[in-house]
Write a protein that binds this DNA or RNA. Structure first.
Length: 262
DNA sequence: ATGTCGGGAAATTCCCGA
């Protein structure tokens, strides 16, 4: 079974590439982030025609997550139970479901903006709530993974230049400690292989030729429990999808598993 | 093979978020 995660930066803007990629990659389950549309604008129909069911948590111009599956979607939980609010609202940043043999989450962790910004404190509270919400499944026997845009580079190796991130979010100790807490709950970082260059970056800013210069970051992560990790046969970043016209600023992370899709 | 992009308000250009 093939599971992937991809921050598409608007599912409506990305729709032609998304549909083509689903077909060419043969992905069974895709965790989507930054749909940037409301439910009413979500492209259920073209996805259905390709054989994918969709579970969606999206409410407008920002954020938004989804699960696309051609191996079933059951027991959908919309949102992060016990999750914090930002400026009085629970933003659409999480959705989970059982897709065939695995339980999966699609998450879009708050960006944080700047150290000390209210959004940064929100990011840390959000991650603490996530850890609580997944603890039971993380320790369970069923293959389980939390996939998505974490907006955190787990190590210094996961940014193109540590000096460029001095005093910035995505690399701070409290953010990395939040990832360590997930690992302590039984989830491991499924590190993909790069298709080119030394590091499996998943995101390159649109600006300043970051992609051709490979000024990237690894912030799209797959955190899986032991039964999930044991089933992994391969994982890679599909950087081809970052190329050309109409690309997202993130590339898909693909995970192949020795699990039978029903 | 590429020097931002996307959405949306107000609107054919700015603003925000990333």
């Amino acid at each position: 079974m093939r599971i992937a995660t991809w921050n598409v930066n608007s599912i409506t803007a990305r729709l032609p590439r998304l549909l083509a990629w689903l077909e060419s990659s043969g992905t069974d389950v895709l965790c989507v982030q930054e749909t940037k549309c409301g439910r009413e604008a979500f492209p259920f129909e073209p996805l259905r025609e390709l054989g994918y069911q969709a579970a969606v948590n999206a409410d407008g111009r920002w954020n938004g997550v989804a699960l696309l599956s051609r191996v079933g979607i059951e027991d959908v939980v919309t949102g992060l139970p016990g999750g914090p609010e930002y400026e009085g609202v629970q933003e659409p940043r999480a959705i989970s479901a059982t897709c065939g043999p695995a339980r999966v989450w699609s998450v879009y962790v708050p960006n944080g903006r700047e150290i000390g910004h209210p959004h940064y404190e929100y990011k840390l509270r959000w991650l603490a709530a996530l850890n609580e919400a997944v603890a039971q499944d993380a320790a369970g026997e069923r293959p389980f993974a939390v996939l998505g845009d974490y907006n955190i580079a787990p190590t210094d190796e996961d940014v193109w230049d540590t000096a460029a991130f001095e005093g910035a979010t995505h690399v701070t100790d409290p953010e990395r400690e939040a990832l360590a807490a997930l690992r302590a709950s039984g989830l491991g970082d499924v590190v993909p292989r790069p298709l080119k260059y030394a590091h499996p970056f998943t995101y390159w800013d649109y600006r300043q030729l970051c992609f051709p210069k490979n000024r990237g970051m690894r912030i799209d992560l797959v955190y899986g429990n032991t039964p999930f990790a044991k089933a992994v046969t391969d994982s890679y970043v599909d950087r081809e999808e970052r190329k050309g016209k109409g690309a997202s600023d993130h590339a898909p992370v693909v995970v192949d598993l020795a699990l039978e899709a029903p």
